[in-house]
Design a protein around this nucleic acid. Structure first.
Length: 423
RNA sequence: GGAGAGAUACUCAAGUGGCUCAAGAGGACGGUUUGCUAAACCGUUAGUGUGCGUAAGUGCAGCGAGGGUUCGAAUCCCUCUCUCUCCGCCA
């Protein structure tokens, strides 16, 4: 949610920025109209209430007083109804207004306008026909999409033997690396309530992307961003505790509505996947700097795994609803011959903290203000497995184990010997 | 799942329709006294959200949340959330 005062005081600038990311002009104008109507009504109601407060006697009112008070009361009610109606409309729009991009975000309309800011590592030249990760995974009997489809449905996967171990090794490796960089680890509920989803901005706009549990107001969390950020919902944090750096491994659940036909095969787009999330709660004056740090912390994983990647800045048109600035880390996938998103690191400024009422307090000045929130994947584990498999594949169809993972897996290679079990 | 009890400010807590635009105590902070500390005494302590105002300021809301009744609600009614106790079930 944007600061209403910011919109009032900088209407033209905000409007320009919002239109650049595809927000409808008509909606924006409607918001402005409703906002001034709301303020006018609020002043009326408050004036009437003040009159009422002054007029209400200490004891029983006289018949004449009663008459006046009744009239006053009914006119308050009438105005109040108008106010509430306007307020509801206003809120509805306010909750669907996206964040305002920072000035450093490039203008653009689609992902084609994203700007590459760096490339790290050279994609390896293979002297054989590379296979995709799902092909290799199936051949080595460490990934099983068919059986997962039997148990559940499409876009689910089952890891087996060293495949399961590889996933678990990556989870541990990532968490330990982040811990070394000052993040505190959490283990969290996978199910969240509506308030939490409103707080981080998944609702009300993206209801269709969420798995809702029937007969309840619970949802399967689409990202640990929701749980981690909402830890601090409705809290006032002492300024000296900032920045707060936290991390968690969670399963994530997404309907992937509207992505039919995209990434049908493999681990890239699943309804359930594991992710390590990084969240920062920071002092507003530091958030731009903290985003760079967050990006570095996420990049570190791929650097240690020695897998090539690049970083792009999302343009205004490709920016997520809640974000003011986003860096995507894209990992090299040899079978696709291109870089694919594996992490998204964003600065939300006070957009989420306004919705979720996350504030900090400066004790000396006795001032409270909204914090800035940031988060990034560090990293999406399934996609990392895909990247490891593809980048570390050998001519004979095996997978070498990255140096940093050897201590977890205790093997040098995942080999195509025989099926691990007969099933 | 059943039965009961709760939720008031930093903490404890009074408060069954107007005398409370929330008493009192503790704590915290400030002051008087004091060689220093303590005690005693005096004072402050409703954070927050939001409107108007350049500002000083001023209004409104706020007693777990949301509705309702009423001229008037912490108080009465309805719905919900959470906490606690007991019973049942259970990894």
């Amino acid at each position: 949610m944007l600061n209403p005062k910011l919109i009032r005081d900088n209407t033209d600038k905000v409007k320009d920025k919002l239109l650049s990311r595809g927000f409808q002009e008509e909606q924006f104008n409607q918001y402005i109209t409703l906002d001034s109507k709301w303020r006018a009504l609020l002043q009326d109601v408050e004036q009437l209430k003040q009159d009422q407060n002054k007029m209400i006697p200490k004891g029983k009112p006289s018949p004449e007083q009663l008459e006046t008070l009744k009239k006053l009361s009914s006119s308050i009610k009438e105005k109040q109804e108008q106010l509430k109606e306007t307020e509801d409309k206003l809120k509805l729009i306010a909750l669907t207004i996206p964040n305002v991009p920072l000035d450093s975000v490039p203008y653009g309309t689609s992902e084609d306008d994203n700007v590459e800011i760096k490339k790290v590592g050279e994609p390896q030249q293979f002297d054989f026909q590379v296979k995709s990760h799902d092909e290799i995974g199936i051949d080595l009997d460490i990934l099983d999409f068919e059986t997962a489809a039997k148990i559940t449905g499409s876009r689910f996967v089952l890891y087996k033997g060293l495949g399961a171990k590889l996933e678990r090794a990556l989870i541990n490796f990532m968490l330990e690396t982040h811990e070394d960089n000052g993040y505190t680890e959490y283990l969290l509920p996978a199910i969240v309530n509506r308030d939490s989803l409103y707080g981080t901005g998944q609702l009300p706009k993206f209801e269709d992307d969420q798995f809702k549990l029937s007969d309840t107001d619970y949802y399967l969390s689409p990202t640990a961003e929701v749980q981690l950020t909402n830890i601090f919902r409705d809290e006032v944090i002492e300024e000296s505790r900032l920045p707060i750096n936290i991390t968690a491994y969670t399963p994530c659940f997404r309907k992937e509505a509207g992505s039919y036909g995209k990434d049908i095969k493999g681990l890239i787009r699943q309804h359930q996947f594991n992710k390590i999330e990084l969240v920062k709660i920071v002092n507003p004056k530091n958030s731009e700097y903290e985003l760079e740090k967050l990006l570095n912390n996420a990049e570190k994983i791929l650097q240690l795994l020695e897998i090539p990647y690049r970083v792009v800045t999302l343009c205004t048109g490709d920016l997520g609803f809640t974000s003011a600035k986003t860096y995507d880390i894209e990992v090299w996938l040899p079978s696709q011959g291109k870089y694919r998103e594996i992490s998204s690191c964003s600065n939300f400024l006070d957009f989420q903290s306004r919705r979720a009422m996350i504030r900090y307090k400066n004790i000396e000045e006795n001032k409270t203000n909204y914090v800035h929130t940031l988060n990034g994947s560090g990293l999406a584990v399934g996609r990392t497995v895909a990247a490891v498999i593809e980048n570390y594949q050998t001519k004979d169809g095996n997978i070498r184990i990255p140096e940093v993972l050897k201590k977890y897996l205790k093997v040098e290679e995942i080999k195509c010997l025989k099926k691990i079990t007969s099933l």
